[in-house]
Design a protein around this nucleic acid. Structure first.
Length: 767
DNA sequence: AGCAAGACTTAGTACCCGCGTC
DNA sequence: GACGCGGGTACTAAGTCTTGCT
């Protein structure tokens, strides 16, 4: 593991997403106090009478002990002090934010602009308007002439004078000058072949070699066909019945539809949970006719089993369909994909990420979600806002309907949006990760992380210094930042209580989430973290910290209740404002990206042995990847089939071993023969046998590597870090350096997403 | 200034589908 | 041809951070 990072401690069952069994349960469900400051004030009061809530007596004991240690002061005094301090901070605090102008979400250092102006652009005159992004082209004037599906004339990249990217804040020119115009020709991807190859080639557009918008717009032209709606509800056949109190009740279609949502989930654990049932029933009743409403008053008396059976049969039947039928469905899906799955953005056909509107159903929150089971209502065209360019062919709503609105906002990237009814948040239809608009952003993210690399030492020195600050808020900020940096914790925004599962990140950690051990297992100053993070994934870790951090934590804990905030003078806004002062574009999450990527790079260096064969090198890669996943706490439920598939693999390995010893025996025999007879034939036989042994040895080794890999991966998910945290150029460089085919590292989708990196990084790329 | 709304990234899981195996 | 498994993908929830309004 990379030097400075804490190890995750996996002795405990650390992989569990904790639902209702976990202790962090609704401790303070105080809906009226939505805002933190009030919240804090009120909480203190509340705690005077809320200590009997611990479910587990041993736990309570522990907490009691903890309480004894802490001397109580008057909470009110504290509170006033808090406020005063905050006011004071404000007065001479944060005005020094010399934020550089940001355009298009890119922090654009002046030199880029200057340079651009000096050098001008090279672009194919044909597309002048679309490429002249700097000058504000009047949207209405702009008409796309042609969709570039083939390799359009190369737009030359701006010339890069200075190879040193130090001065080149945001975008390092990946391969300055090395490329010639004609490198657009993409080689056929290995194995990609077939009829798709033509299309793929057409679509390969190297957006990363073009200029970016700097005027804050995300596109100049956008045309699409709108989203695909969920199919309308099909009432159940009359023989499928619903029973209430054992008696058949014919439901009205709306009520029936909602009932089917529940019926479909019958063998899911969700349906046994009280909150789920309560929420479902409440929302279901809203859909009932008055008669139904008066009749059906108790969910426990409802019998959905016949409906459930029906759906099971249906899905069975679907599986049993003939090839032809399946083929037909597939073709239909393909047709829809072709029609609705793409849009035209600035002369290029781009894949849409999610072009289907979420179908109605029962809300499945993760973890202990207070809204689980609520009805997620059907979205109609009247709920949907369309975003496209004025001069595009607007999508037509389904017959007899209309859109809520059609707007032309090129400052955003979405094509359509609607408001969802569970949380009231907005959902969007956006482009695929392989699109220019997502790729640029992704690239930029890693460039920001690389800029952090250049000043991280300074920042670290600063926060270490701040541990000694006279001001509490600064110490808290410094310790929090230390956690974010060392442990790759998330920022931890405030959440509205009662609206979501009770999960936390760094800034929202509460006293109850950490435990301090002056000494533990021979280590000094150990902090134990135990909390539910994003998606209610448990974070459990014991890590030794520096004495100063430890003392600070003790200080922060003084006079607090378990459910008080650990960092009561800090939140993500304060933290990010501060970070912004340290480096343009720096926020808490950049540390995660930075530490993940740098860890991968280090680990790859450390783990790859030049003499290893390809599978062994890949194992090393996966291990490096795994180190990152562990750092970021990316967990998964061990696959249900895990044990079994491990066994299968073991059987294979055993078989291979037998085969190997047999082959060895044969080789021995052959050698003996050769010795005895000295003839050519037997010599040849020895050679063949030798080869066979070698081959089998290799196969065995491959299997063993596979087994190790899988075992180590049991509860760790590599995908998330690979997709979101690791600068793909590191992986690409590694694969080029060791001659590992990129396909071994990235599957097709990943290669599409990271096309920019695969194209631009060479083997000496350094993060 | 403070906060909610908005936009966009990050996240785990369910399920599908193609492939190898029996 | 059925089966099962494992990777890949679709889905959508849950975060972070920014924007814009009062």
């Amino acid at each position: 593991m990379s030097g400075d990072h804490g190890y995750r401690n996996y002795e405990m069952d650390s992989s569990t997403r904790v639902n209702d069994s976990h202790k962090h349960k609704d401790k303070h469900k105080d809906k009226e106090h939505k805002h933190k400051d009030h919240k804090k004030d009120k909480e203190r009061e509340k705690h005077k009478h809320s200590n009997s809530e611990y479910r587990d007596s041993s736990e309570k004991k522990h907490r009691d002990k903890e309480k004894e240690r802490v001397k109580h002061k008057d909470g009110n005094l504290d509170r006033h002090k808090d406020k005063e301090k905050r006011r004071e901070e404000k007065s001479h605090g944060a005005d020094g934010k010399h934020r550089k102008e940001k355009e298009n979400g890119f922090a654009s250092p002046p030199q880029i602009k200057a340079e651009s102006d000096d050098n001008g652009y090279y672009h194919s005159p044909k597309y002048e308007k679309s490429l002249k992004r700097e000058r504000d082209v009047d949207e209405s004037e702009y008409k796309p002439k042609k969709i570039k599906t083939e390799n359009e004339k190369k737009v030359k990249k701006r010339k890069k004078e200075d190879d040193d990217y130090e001065d080149y804040e945001d975008y390092e020119d990946p391969k300055p000058k090395k490329k010639t115009k004609d490198q657009m020709k993409t080689k056929e991807e290995t194995g990609g072949g077939k009829k798709k190859s033509k299309k793929e080639q057409e679509e390969k557009w190297k957006w990363w070699e073009e200029e970016r918008y700097t005027d804050g717009s995300k596109w100049k032209f956008l045309e699409h066909k709108g989203p695909v709606f969920a199919p309308p509800y099909e009432p159940l056949p009359s023989h499928v019945r619903f029973y209430y109190d054992g008696k058949f009740v014919k439901l009205s279609p709306p009520a029936e539809e909602v009932a089917t949502f529940f019926a479909k989930m019958l063998d899911h654990e969700y349906t046994t949970k009280d909150i789920f049932r309560k929420n479902f029933f409440k929302d279901w009743r809203k859909e009932m006719t008055p008669e139904e409403k008066s009749k059906i008053t108790d969910l426990n008396r409802c019998d959905f089993r016949e409906m459930h059976e029906y759906f099971k049969t249906q899905s069975e039947a679907r599986k049993q369909m003939t090839k032809e039928e399946k083929q037909k469905i597939k073709e239909e899906n393909e047709r829809i994909l072709q029609e609705y799955g793409y849009c035209v953005m600035d002369n290029h056909k781009e894949r849409i990420g999610n072009f289907r509107i979420e179908p109605p159903g029962l809300f499945r929150g993760r973890g202990d979600h207070p809204k689980m089971g609520m009805l997620k209502r059907r979205i109609r065209p009247e709920d949907v806002i369309i975003n496209c360019s004025k001069d595009s062919k607007h999508p037509t709503p389904p017959p007899g309907t209309r859109w809520k609105e059609v707007r032309h906002d090129n400052k955003v990237t979405w094509l359509a949006s609607w408001t969802e009814n569970i949380q009231g948040s907005i959902k969007y239809i956006m482009l695929n990760p392989s699109s220019r608009i997502k790729g640029e952003k992704d690239w930029q993210k890693y460039e920001t992380a690389r800029r952090l690399k250049k000043c991280v030492d300074r920042i670290r020195a600063q926060y270490r210094d701040d541990w000694k600050s006279k001001e509490m808020r600064i110490r808290q900020r410094a310790v929090a930042l230390y956690f974010i940096d060392k442990l790759a914790l998330r920022a931890g925004n405030e959440k509205e209580e009662g609206e979501t599962a009770d999960t936390v990140g760094c800034c929202s950690l509460r006293v109850e989430h950490i435990r301090l051990y002056p000494e533990l297992d021979g280590q000094d100053y150990v902090v134990e973290f135990d909390f539910l993070g994003k998606d209610s994934i448990r974070y459990y870790n014991k890590i030794p910290v520096e004495k100063r951090v430890f003392k600070n934590l003790q200080l922060f804990l003084e006079n607090k209740q378990p459910e008080d905030d650990l960092f009561d003078r800090l939140n993500t806004t304060i933290l990010n404002k501060y970070l912004q002062e340290l480096m343009d574009g720096l926020t808490a999450k950049v540390f995660r990206t930075y530490n993940a990527s740098i860890t991968l790079q280090q680990q790859l260096k450390e783990l790859t042995s030049p003499d290893d064969n390809v599978p062994a090198k890949i194992l090393s890669y996966n291990r490096a990847n795994r180190a990152v996943a562990v750092l970021c706490n990316h967990q998964r439920a061990p696959p249900k089939t895990f044990e079994k598939s491990m066994q299968n693999l073991q059987t294979k390995i055993d078989a291979k071993k037998k085969q190997l010893s047999a082959a060895k025996k044969e080789l021995k025999g052959a050698k003996a023969d050769a010795k005895a007879s000295h003839d050519e034939k037997s010599k040849k036989a020895v050679e063949t046998k030798k080869k066979a042994v070698q081959r089998i040895e290799e196969q065995l080794m491959k299997l063993e590597v596979q087994a190790t890999d899988r075992e180590e991966n049991k509860q760790i998910a590599l995908g998330t870090s690979k997709l979101n945290y690791l600068d793909p150029r590191i992986s690409v460089a590694w694969s080029k350096k060791w001659g590992i085919p990129i396909e071994k590292i990235y599957n097709k989708t990943q290669r599409e997403k990271f096309a920019w990196a695969i194209d631009m990084a060479d083997e000496d790329f350094e993060f």
